[in-house]
């Protein structure tokens, strides 16, 4: 049995649904805040995810950081060294998708050369008539950045767990790879 711990940065433009997503995941789908309340700082949510077919688990420390440009600089100080990245955009806003590359640049500075696995999440999939970003386009960009792509609807509580469960699984396999490497090492 292994209990892993991962620091998961939750980033993306304002009002794309970062907090809604993380609250739904954290509360097992019982909490969707109907009224928008902008995150102005950093909120920390912890949830333990069991890895299927093992006795192992991953504690995700989700760092929900304000998306508003003027607040980012202050929030960045609390990002620390991330283990995982969850980058969210709004499927009905081309602009929020275009900004994802800027978020990636910001994150890189905090990774200190470490490979940080991540997912790209297109949220608000329920607003299909207002969709501005096609799945194929998002998928392609995600792949170019080494991210796994997911679409969610926080409002309809659809697929909201998937990106986080996927992150936990990725981190778990990273641990096992690293452990195997270490087991095969020769003395210094």
């Amino acid at each position: 049995m292994v209990k892993l711990r991962a620091r998961c940065l939750l980033l993306g433009d304002p009002a794309v649904g970062k907090s809604a997503l993380s609250h739904i995941f954290h509360s097992d789908g019982t909490l969707f805040q109907k009224n928008y309340s902008m995150t102005t700082g950093v909120e920390l949510l912890m949830k333990c995810v069991n890895i299927p077919e093992t006795n192992d688990s991953v504690e995700l420390y989700i760092i929900d950081s304000a998306g508003k440009e003027t607040l980012v600089e202050t929030c960045e100080k609390m990002w620390g060294e991330p283990s995982l990245l969850c980058l969210v955009f709004d499927l009905t806003s081309e602009h929020s998708f275009a900004n994802c590359s800027r978020w990636m640049e910001r994150v890189r500075v905090h990774c200190h050369g470490l490979h940080v696995p991540g997912v790209l999440v297109g949220n608000k999939s329920d607003l299909s008539t207002r969709r501005e970003v096609q799945a194929s386009m998002a998928q392609e960009w995600a792949q170019s950045q080494g991210l796994e792509y997911h679409e969610t609807s926080a409002k309809e509580m659809e697929n909201c767990d998937a990106p986080f469960l996927s992150l936990a699984r990725i981190f778990h396999s990273l641990y096992h790879e690293c452990r195997e490497t270490i087991q095969s090492l020769s003395p210094g």
């Binding site: 892993l4 711990r5 620091r7 504690e59 060294e81 283990s83 452990r179 003395p187």
Partner: peptide, 12 residues
Amino acid sequence: NTNTFWMSTGMF
């Protein structure tokens, strides 16, 4: 013994 080890399980 250097063949046995303690391993960290995430975060610093």
